[in-house]
Structure formats: structure tokens, C-alpha cells
Write a protein that binds this DNA or RNA. Structure first.
Length: 555
RNA sequence: GCGAGCGUAGUGUAGUGGUUAUCACCGGGCGUUGCCAACGCCUGAACCCGGGUUCGAGUCCCGGCGCUCGCACCA
């Protein structure tokens, strides 16, 4: 960090000009909550839209939108109720609150993995001393969840729920609708852009750790048994900084990283590439971007492998995108919790034919003979070889031995043909923290320079994210210059996808400076000559070059 | 969550119990044949919230909220 106050000046400007501001400030503010202001609002929506367009290029993904209010059961199934909880206990002597698992580290190899009841039992059994006062008396263990609690419905009929901590669960719970939409053909993806909520104990670092945040996630469902053929050639000439787990950082292209086995999965490698392209396109400096593989003990409860895109800015290297291989964890969890099937079907190249030629029980006689054990007897008999002669003694799964006579069995001859099978797809999840990305786009675009010996700041924002596309400036609001400028401004604003800003106050230099400060790429100035020949001055933000263009040729 | 520091116009600030609350940038209006925060005139805007001490509180005390830092925590 080479700060010397840059971060303070940047934050001040972002607030002053209306990019991002503390939310609800007139009421005293609220920690971890921010507004995108008059300037930041459009930047936020442009970046979201650019993200959608970028990933929709895959051609086999769709966007969905799910509620943020989520029933308890959904997040219990996903593991968030368990994983997002800290189990707290309070010292009865000094009232200091401690985490139960931390207190029990001396008494258990991995207390973090214990359930609340187990922690409770172990705590009361071992009575560790309070780190604050040394007393050994503890309150009951209580779960403190990092998700926002709410009630869905009022009073007696209310059911517990949470605000979602991630958008991902919506894609999993909608799996069957996605599966039908894609004509039951994998791979495909569902994606979602929206809000997520985490009731952080200590939000810090401005936009980096928020309690309500914007995320954009893709869940990409794949058949784990079919090889993923991915074209990595678009990144053949793009060296990227990779930090493999327990290895030294390397700079390598994605095709090479995949061939060398640094990245194990072709689709994962491709998603790293698509992510890289996105971040660079919105204005992240490639020199301050890297991908880091998670340590084994760092990965979330669901992940098999995970690479983060980390961006360097005023707060150091910050993870802004997580690209996780979630395996089949989520779909299995929701299957188990609901009893519904969340699977895809793969057809075999050839039908698999199994021929059975052995024994099974004769229900009419074996049933009355073995009663409750009949099921176990059936399993045991069907496991016997064809050459078995009856009567014989078989050992059941429960350890009992029974005598099975000829009258209890019959020959079992059948042919089973299976044309395919149902399986649980694997999931690759690129998850983008939009606010963190916006922060770093702003951070990287913020440029402090000198102009005629004076401090000068400008935002070198790319057109993909610039909050205002054009500023239209009449030199003076007289002799018709103001009216003409207003007409041009209106014409620009009526063009889909464009936003123009009309500014007539202050000197022309001041207005260029104001436009530069919020990153307007192009200024259009109407002067006396415009009244005569219809040409305007088009001025470029980064070079300050001016050219005269006829007003009808602006677009 | 604990500890420390801080909280005054949009921004940065001055202000050690009595001021019409300081200064600068800033914002707005008008003028300017004028093109990179130029200039002139006019003008706008603040003591985080609540309680207490006091004749009197921006200033002292208590609580809350927020910000920063350290510790703890952290998809």
C-alpha cells in the first residue's frame, strides 16, 4: 500500500460526487450498508448488465431471479444454518462471551465440527477456564447465526426464514425447471444477479465487507463422467498470474496451466479465462489481478476445489470472485431434505443388459415361514449361486441362521436391459462480489495528476462502466447556444443505452474538470461556431484532444 | 464483540465554557467571443443523536449511533 492519503481522497470524492455513500446517513448511518448514489447507481446497473451479457455468451445459460427471503428449511439443507453459525457461551462470572469451539480446542481435535449439543456436553464436562477471568462456569451454548433472521408470515402462522446469504440456492432449488428448459441436456447453467445478506459481526473496510451486497452467480451443471471439451485457445497469448496451493506464484497462460495439471478441470480453466476477460473489460488492471487456489482448510463446506480472483487495491489483495467446484454436494443435500429427485439422465452407448440366473424366494411359502425375516431371507437367497441345492442353511444380514427348504425358493431367471441411468450433476460456480469489483474498478480508475501545476483528479473509467456517456456543455446559455445544447442532450438521452449530462454552470474548464472527475469519456461543447455551421467540439477525457464534428454525426 | 482515537457546511478544517461558529475549496445565480478547476459581482450551506453538569455546552460528563486503527471474527 502506497497510501499517503490517497484512499481518503478517493473515498471523499466518491461520496462528494455521488458514487457511493454511507446509507441512511441522516439517521446516523448503518454499518455495512452503502448507497450507490446519483453517479454510482448507473455504474452499478451497467456492470450488472455487462456481467449478464458476458456470461450469456456461453449460449447454454439462462438468467433466473429468486426471492431473497428464504425458508429456514432451504438453508438448513444447504448447510448454511450449521456452517454460518458461531456457537457462543457466556461466562457466568464476568459475562464475557466466548466461542464454545475455541474454548474446547484443548479437549477435542476439531471442535469446529461438533454440533451444538455436543459442544454443550463437552463444555459442561471439561469446564475450561474463562479467558477473561478464569472462572469455570458457563451459560448454555447458543447459536449466533450470521444470516439475517426473519419470520415469513405473521403470528401463529409465521415460519422462520432468513435473508439469503448467497443467490446460489435458488439455482439448485430450481434445478428441475432448468433441466426441462434445456431439454434435459447437460451441460447448462442458471445464473442470477441480486442481493445477498450476511449479518457480519464487524463490517470493515468500506465496500469490502458489507451486510447487504450485490452478487452475481452462475451455477453450471455438468456430467462428471463426460469429459469437458473446452476451447482455451482464446487465452493462449494471455499470461495470467496463478497461485497454486502450496506452490510459488507463476505467470502462465490458461491452456498451459491446464496441460500442466495446475488447473485440473477444463471448464474451470475456461471459467477462469472468462472471468479474467470480464474483469479486464470493466477496467481492472491486469497487473493487479491474480487467481489463487484455496488451501484445503480454507474451502467452504461444499467445495472440492476453488480458485479466487483476487484484485489488488487500497486494501491489499482482496478476493472478488470465487470459482468453486461444488461437486454434487448441493443437489444431494436438497434431495435428501426434500425427497425430490434432482438428477440428470445419461443414456448408455449400448443398453446394459444384465442376465440373472439363480434363486429367489417363493413369497407364498417363504412369507408365512419366515415372517418378519422374509426380506432378509430374500436378500440372502438371491446372493446364492445357481448350483446351490436345498435345503440349505443361510446366514442373514442380521447374523441369524435359518434353514431354507426347496419349497421356499424358486428359480430366478430374467434379463434386465437398462438404456441409461440417473445421476447427480456436478456444479461449477463462478460467484462474483459485484460491490468489491466496483470498488476496485473505481480504485484502479482513480488517477491523481497535475494540470498546469494544480492537483487534478480524473476517473479513467472504461465506456463499459462509465456512469455518464456524454456531457453536453454550452459555452454560454445565450444566443441560442443553451437551447441547441439542450436539444443535443435530449437527442443523446433518447438513444437507447446512452446517458448524457447537461452542465451549464461555471467556466468551461471547470465543467471539463467536473466531467473528468466522474469519468465521463466524452464532452461535447456548443459554441458560437455551432450556431453558424452546426459543428461542435468533441473532447476526449484521457487525451483532452478536441475535434470539431457536425452535431448530426455524433452517433 | 473488546480496547483506543475520532465525529463542526458537499469536502478539508479552525475553534480549552460566553464569537453573528473560522478559513479554503465547493455549490447556485449573473456577467464574460469565451475551450481545460481563469476572473468579477451576488449568494447557499455545518456543531452526529439523546440525556446530564452549568446562568450559559461545539467545547465538560454519561449513553447511543457512525468512522478509523489494533485484537478477535470472517463466504
Amino acid at each position: 500500500m502506497t497510501d499517503d492519503g490517497r484512499l481518503d481522497r478517493l473515498s471523499g470524492m466518491l461520496k462528494r460526487r455521488g458514487f457511493i455513500l454511507p446509507a441512511f446517513e441522516i439517521h446516523g448511518g448503518a454499518k455495512g450498508l452503502y448507497d450507490f448514489g446519483p453517479v454510482g447507481g448507473r455504474m452499478h446497473s451497467k456492470i450488472n448488465q455487462f456481467w449478464r451479457d458476458h456470461w450469456l455468451k456461453l449460449g447454454n445459460v439462462v438468467e433466473i431471479s429468486c426471492p431473497t427471503v428464504t425458508p429456514y428449511a432451504v438453508l438448513e439443507a444447504s448447510g448454511h444454518v450449521g456452517e454460518f453459525s458461531d456457537f457462543m457461551t457466556q461466562c457466568l462470572n464476568c459475562e464475557e462471551a466466548s466461542r464454545a469451539d475455541t474454548l474446547l480446542e484443548a479437549h477435542h481435535p476439531n471442535p469446529d465440527a461438533l454440533k451444538m449439543e455436543e459442544l454443550q456436553a463437552l463444555l459442561f464436562e471439561t469446564l475450561p477456564p474463562c479467558p477473561a477471568c478464569g472462572a469455570q462456569t458457563w451459560s448454555e451454548v447458543s447459536a449466533q447465526n450470521l444470516m439475517f433472521n426473519t419470520m415469513i408470515g405473521a403470528g401463529e402462522s409465521g415460519r422462520p426464514g432468513f435473508l439469503r446469504p448467497e443467490t446460489a440456492q435458488g439455482m439448485f432449488t430450481s434445478f428441475n425447471a432448468l433441466f426441462r428448459h434445456f431439454r434435459e441436456r447437460l451441460p447448462f447453467g442458471g445464473m442470477q444477479v441480486g442481493k445477498g445478506y450476511r449479518n457480519e459481526i464487524a463490517p470493515r473496510q468500506g465496500m469490502i465487507r458489507l451486510r447487504e451486497f450485490n452478487m452475481a452467480e452462475l451455477e453450471y451443471f455438468m456430467d462428471p463422467e463426460s469429459e469437458q471439451h473446452e476451447d482455451l485457445s482464446p487465452w493462449a497469448n494471455t499470461p495470467i498470474q496463478l497461485l497454486e496451493r502450496e506452490k510459488e506464484p507463476t505467470i502462465i497462460t490458461l491452456p498451459e496451466a491446464f496441460q500442466n495439471g495446475i488447473i485440473h478441470h477444463a471448464t474451470l480453466a475456461r471459467f477462469l479465462g472468462i472471468t479474467y476477460d470480464f474483469l479486464v473489460a470493466v477496467g481492472i488492471d491486469p497487473q493487479r489481478l491474480r487467481f489463487r487456489q484455496h488451501e484445503e482448510n480454507e474451502m467452504a463446506h461444499y467445495a472440492e476445489d476453488c480458485w479466487d480472483a483476487e484484485i489488488e487495491g487500497s486494501y491489499g489483495w482482496i478476493e472478488c470472485v470465487g470459482i468453486a467446484h461444488r461437486g454434487c454436494y448441493d443437489l444431494l443435500q436438497h434431495e435428501e431434505a426434500t425427497g425430490k429427485t434432482l438428477r440428470a439422465r445419461r443414456e448408455f452407448a449400448e443398453p446394459r443388459v444384465t442376465t440373472i440366473d439363480a434363486w429367489t424366494i417363493n413369497g407364498a411359502t417363504a412369507g408365512p415361514a419366515f415372517k418378519a425375516q422374509a426380506g432378509l431371507v430374500k436378500d440372502a437367497v438371491e446372493a446364492l449361486p445357481k448350483a446351490t441345492t436345498f435345503p440349505t442353511t443361510v446366514t442373514l444380514a442380521n447374523g441369524d441362521s435359518v434353514e431354507v427348504g426347496e419349497e421356499h425358493v424358486k428359480a430366478n431367471q430374467k434379463t434386465i436391459s437398462e438404456s441409461g441411468e440417473w445421476y447427480t450433476p456436478h456444479v461449477l460456480e463462478p460467484a462474483f462480489g459485484i460491490d468489491r469489483i466496483i470498488w476496485h474498478v473505481l480504485d484502479h480508475a482513480y488517477t491523481e495528476t497535475k494540470k498546469n501545476g494544480e492537483d487534478y483528479t480524473l476517473m479513467r473509467l472504461k465506456e463499459t462502466v462509465a456512469p455518464v456517456d456524454y456531457a453536453v456543455l454550452p459555452l454560454f446559455e445565450k444566443d441560442g447556444m443553451g437551447d441547441l445544447a439542450w436539444t443535443i442532450h435530449q437527442r443523446l438521452c433518447q438513444t437507447s443505452g446512452l446517458v448524457s449530462m447537461y452542465d451549464a454552470s461555471g467556466s468551461i474548464g471547470r465543467r471539463y474538470a467536473r466531467a473528468d472527475e466522474i469519468g465521463v469519456p466524452t464532452c461535447i461543447t456548443v459554441d458560437h461556431q455551432t450556431l453558424e455551421d452546426g459543428t461542435v467540439t468533441v473532447r476526449d477525457r484521457d487525451t483532452t484532444d478536441q475535434t470539431r464534428v457536425h452535431m448530426d454525426q455524433l452517433l
